[in-house]
Design a protein around this nucleic acid. Structure first.
Lengths: 197, 197
DNA sequence: AAGTCTTGCTAACACGCGTTAGCTTCTTAT
DNA sequence: ATAAGAAGCTAACGCGTGTTAGCAAGACTT
């Protein structure tokens, strides 16, 4: 009889959630079926329901575990006594590393949250909106301090966040540069711009 | 009896394709049903098949109409006698304007191409890869000319392309800046960077 | 006005989906 | 060794999906 393998400190539910992340990333939430997921876990579809409540619950878990990490990070960065540019850089580095090391989770949270059901959906959208406002506020402080040039802060936030989601393509690339190089390049371009002055 | 309204020079198929773009953007390709589409067109689901071959055909049309426009644009830009930075700027402006004025189409092409079926899928992926290489080549020329600082060109391309897809959020925003302001801001940030020098 | 082609409708199909019920088997603790 | 709980299986459900067949209504052409 097939059995879901577990190491210490990782429940069978965690195994399922992690496999779901991979599958949702590959196919999208709607296109990935519970039978697909069951196969990748090594079990029959019905057996999954001994560990999870529903397919949507898997999406909740993924989206909010990512959202919570980001919220926690911006909490601590806001209180630090460093320049605005340094705060932006720290935030960017965090995003980049999240994207590199928790690729599937972050990707799914980014692209598939639309399929959340409604108490969760509004909640998620709210968190997202708040996060972006707090990010924009850091940039606006930097503008007032003349550290950062006069730009529309919300637009800058959009650019940064979406630019980082481009790591998706890096992740699948065969001839890729190292993670450190990637991080350096991204910070250089986003903070310093393209132009050689 | 319901009838699909058409203006001059716009076929009933075009009406369907356009409505499909809106729907696929809202719900995603898989989640949007032919019955949804029929309703938004004002007709019964089966009637759609007098004008189109299949649901996937709609996705083909959308993805390749966008891909072709971009290919055509980079064709002409490559031959122009201007600096690399100017080429990059022109390309960025084109992307931004495409995103603003053909929002649904571009968005769908960007996020839903995974659901293409295989002769089309490989074709699309190929075009995408080639486009990015050509974009990167422009940047690399700029680096050799010392117009552009030493960075990893493919990474720069990823950043730019994904940054622009952030306009999605701008598009839905209520208190949005004007299209011209958006364009100026994006070019400033992406080409010039954040730092006030 | 007649005939033809276009466009729409209703009904139905075969299929894959998420999920549940009920039973069996394996693991763990007494 | 045995009872209890956890985890798996098969079978099946109701539903929504994309699509087709066959027919009716509307719009052009002569």
């Amino acid at each position: 009889m097939a059995r879901i393998k577990t190491d210490k400190n990782i429940s069978r539910k965690d195994v399922i959630v992690n496999k779901a992340a991979i599958l949702f990333r590959e196919k999208g939430f709607k296109a990935a079926s519970m039978r697909d997921l069951a196969e990748s876990v090594g079990v029959e579809a019905a057996s999954l329901y001994n560990h999870i409540k529903s397919k949507t619950e898997l999406l909740h878990e993924l989206c909010f575990s990512v959202a919570n990490r980001f919220m926690h990070k911006i909490d601590t960065i806001e209180t630090e006594q460093i320049s605005s540019i340094e705060k932006v850089e720290k935030l960017l580095k965090f995003h980049i590393n999240e994207m590199i090391h928790h690729y599937e989770e972050v990707y799914v949270s980014d692209r598939e949250w639309k399929h959340l059901a409604d108490p969760y959906l509004s909640n998620f959208q709210n968190q997202r909106r708040i996060y972006r406002k707090r990010f924009a506020a850091i940039i606006e402080t930097g503008i007032r301090n003349k550290e950062i040039k006069k730009i529309d802060a919300p637009t800058a936030v959009l650019i940064m966040l979406h630019a980082i989601s481009g790591i998706e393509s890096w992740h699948r690339s065969t001839q890729k540069i190292s993670a450190t190089e990637l991080e350096e390049n991204m910070i250089t371009i986003l903070v310093g711009g393209l132009v050689h002055k």
